[in-house]
Nucleic acid binder design. Structure first.
Length: 648
RNA sequence: GCCGGUGUAGCUCAGUUGGCCAGAGCAGCUGAUUUGUAAUCAGCUGGCCGGGGGUUCGAAUCCCUCCACCGGCUCCA
């Protein structure tokens, strides 16, 4: 009678089985298709192989390729096969770790002296990998004692595995076998290697043992595998699409920005079209900010080292700043501004503040400079000089929530106007079990955290809450945005700060005539102008929203005869606040259209004999084609209504 | 900073077992053409082959070094 156990499935259904049933057995009783596709399982929260017997009542979840957990098991298993392949192709290689990652997996290995893996070796690795995979070798786990495990790897001279095992508890150590290959492993595999039908070695890179740059550098081989050849092809298409959208490529093609070796790496040069676009973004935000009660300030590009010692940035980020600049006579030291907030604190202190003055909201498009290691630089997303759409709100503790709501509304407005429709707000709170590492009183933290949670609750947005992700100086809210091809970016941020008001001894006089400390809120809806433009460029693939795009329309005369008419049309459009150009070259209309299409100009206005007679324009939309005839007024109304829809 | 890769005209790229003056397409310039919804034709200009050093009778090509760019160095058996 006690031989039977109850298995509870995720939908709450309860089924009865004989003790010792495996997840695979259960899958078979549900459906044949599921049994064919099931890759791994979770029994009472623990990831197991589908062949692991279940001996007692349990909650069971089955995973296929469509589940994150299924992919993880798939890629984890693939890492084993990669290890097997590398061991086969590079005798004497020392295996270290090889986890599944977001897109695929990697394996870190210590190659024998003199051996190097480069791109040319990928096909060989892929081929051998598939040979092994086709063996359909089953993965099987076996427990091993710590002594035996240590002995095995000591004999093999693999100091990395030895180090790993030394940190494990005896009785808790398992090996995984498949084919004739064995690796230290804690489990979570697919049934056999035969499920892996497609593999691509993506790249090879150096990686430090345990991520520590003082330790030995290993060779990391990245790969991604799939259960169907078709899946791999689709993935490669997606990568191609990402490549086409690369902001560095589009930035060059659309003449938005460039870099110069001579100016210095990581220092972007904004070209006229890019600068105009950025200015439009700044004006757009600034207009909203003025309406929301912000006051613009301007502060210099350098500041005394003392300023940053006071703020604490020098102690924490001194190493990440450029070397101080010294005045020749007095030997005073200045730093290139790495942060705007200390300057804004000094502006707050310019005069005594009353509780009636708060909140004080100081905003600045402030350019800052940070020393990023040369290998960290990347297009516009990681640079050494960039401009933050920075503002600091100095308010009373009881105003935090209201201010937060206002900032959230500002961020939502910005995201909407730029066609970012898929985003999540991440609330980062204190780690409740380790309150020591945070500055500020318990009471203030509780108040601020509650304020953020409540503020987010007042708006209808997707939210996740992360404990322990708060900054040491306060909780924060970050906006994680998904772009058009599904990649996630962190954009806007709102952070509460108790630290700087203390360090700068900021005060206001309360209604009780006593001095109080204000709370500071840092916020940047874009984050940095450089990074934001990069993300936006990749999101929209260079086709910016109409209100932002460099040229909204280009007038294309059919022949030189209509050039003057075209210029007149452009003047009329300019009067309606529409910007554009006339293509006056003596090219055929097909060529003019092609060039405008490639420049991603949203509207092409064709002007020839018919139009000259009828007083209308033939309108063509980029990427779509002919829209028919419009009078200038009709077109202007059409454009301005489309823009208004974005901005309201 | 470290590992691997790359660097040839404004752009995209060919040329590398060392060997005549380093090539193409696009862009640019000049001229012809006066055009109806994604490339009109012809001619011309344009390069210290990333910088420096070396090997050699001879280097874009081989070696050393520096610089920049690309991918990674966070994902933990």
């Amino acid at each position: 009678m006690s031989n039977n156990i109850i298995i509870t499935l995720p939908d709450g259904a309860k089924r009865e089985y004989a003790a010792g049933v495996t997840p695979m057995d259960v899958a078979m009783t549900i459906s044949e298709g599921l049994a064919r596709n099931v890759l791994s399982a979770k029994v009472n929260g623990k990831t197991v192989e589908v062949s692991t017997p279940i001996t007692a009542h349990a909650h069971l979840t089955l995973f296929t390729w469509n589940d994150k957990e299924g992919k993880t098991a798939f890629w984890h298993s693939s890492a084993h096969v990669l290890a097997q392949t590398l061991e086969h192709l590079y005798p004497g290689v020392k295996l270290t770790i090889g986890p599944a990652i977001e897109n695929g997996f990697y394996y870190d290995v210590d190659l024998p002296a003199g051996k190097v893996i480069s791109d040319n070796d990928f096909p060989v690795i892929e081929q051998k990998f598939l040979e092994f995979a086709r063996e359909k070798a089953e993965f099987s786990m076996k427990p091993v004692s710590k002594d035996d495990a240590l002995k095995l790897y000591k004999d093999a001279g693999n100091e990395f595995k030895v180090e790993l095992i030394e940190n494990l508890t005896d009785g808790d150590i398992t090996f995984c076998d498949h084919s004739n290959f064995t690796d230290l492993c804690r489990g979570g595999h697919i049934p056999n290697t035969g499920f892996i039908k497609a593999i691509k070695i993506m790249n090879v890179a150096g990686a430090y043992w345990r991520g520590d740059e003082k330790k030995k550098q290993l060779t990391r081989v990245y790969g991604i595998s799939f259960p169907k050849d078709k899946d791999l092809k689709e993935y490669l298409v997606l990568l191609e699409e990402a490549k086409k959208r690369d902001h560095r490529k589009l930035g060059k093609e659309l003449e938005l920005f460039t870099f110069s070796q001579k100016v210095g790496q990581g220092l972007p040069l904004w070209l006229p079209k890019g600068a105009a676009l950025r200015r439009r973004l700044e004006n757009f935000l600034q207009k909203q900010q003025v309406e929301a009660g912000y006051e613009m300030v301007i502060t210099p590009h350098i500041g005394s080292k003392e300023l940053y010692i006071t703020s604490g940035h020098y102690a924490k980020y001194g190493k990440d700043s450029f070397q101080p600049i010294c005045t020749p006579a007095e030997g005073e030291e200045f730093l290139l501004k790495p942060m705007n907030c200390p300057h804004h604190c000094e502006i707050y202190k310019f005069k005594p503040r009353s509780y009636k003055d708060l909140p004080v909201r100081l905003a600045e498009f402030g350019t800052v400079y940070r020393y990023e290691q040369s290998g960290e630089l990347h297009g516009l997303t990681r640079v050494r000089g960039f401009t933050q759409d920075d503002a600091h709100i100095f308010c009373r503790p009881d105003q935090v929530k209201e201010e937060f709501v206002k900032v959230i509304d500002l961020v939502l407005y910005v995201l909407n106007a730029l066609h970012f429709n898929d985003f999540t707000a991440q609330i980062s709170l204190r780690d409740p079990s380790d309150k020591e590492k945070y500055i500020g009183s318990d009471e203030n933290w509780a108040k601020a955290e509650a304020a953020i949670v409540e503020a987010v609750g007042e708006r209808d947005i997707k939210t996740v809450t992360e404990y322990g992700e708060a900054a040491f100086y306060g909780p924060k809210l970050d906006f994680m945005v998904k772009d058009a091809i599904g990649r996630s970016w962190q954009l806007g941020t709102i952070q509460v700060d108790y630290n700087l008001p203390d360090r700068f001894e900021l005060e206001y006089v309360g209604s009780d005539n006593a001095k109080h400390r204000p709370v500071m809120i840092h916020r940047a809806p874009f984050g940095s102008m450089e990074r934001f433009v990069a993300v936006l460029l990749e999101h929209c693939a260079g086709k910016f929203p109409l209100w932002l795009t460099p040229e909204q329309a280009v007038v294309l005369p059919i022949s030189d005869k209509y050039n003057e008419d075209a210029k007149q049309v452009l003047r009329l459009l300019n009067n309606h606040d529409i910007r554009g150009l006339v293509d006056e070259r003596s090219e055929k209309i097909g060529k003019k259209i092609r060039d405008a299409e490639l420049r991603k100009v949203p509207y092409m206005l064709i002007l020839g004999e018919q139009e000259a007679k009828s007083g209308k324009l033939s309108v063509r939309k980029q990427g779509e084609g002919d829209l028919g005839s419009f009078t200038i007024e009709e077109f202007a109304t059409f454009i301005n209504e489309a823009i208004a829809a974005d901005l309201n």
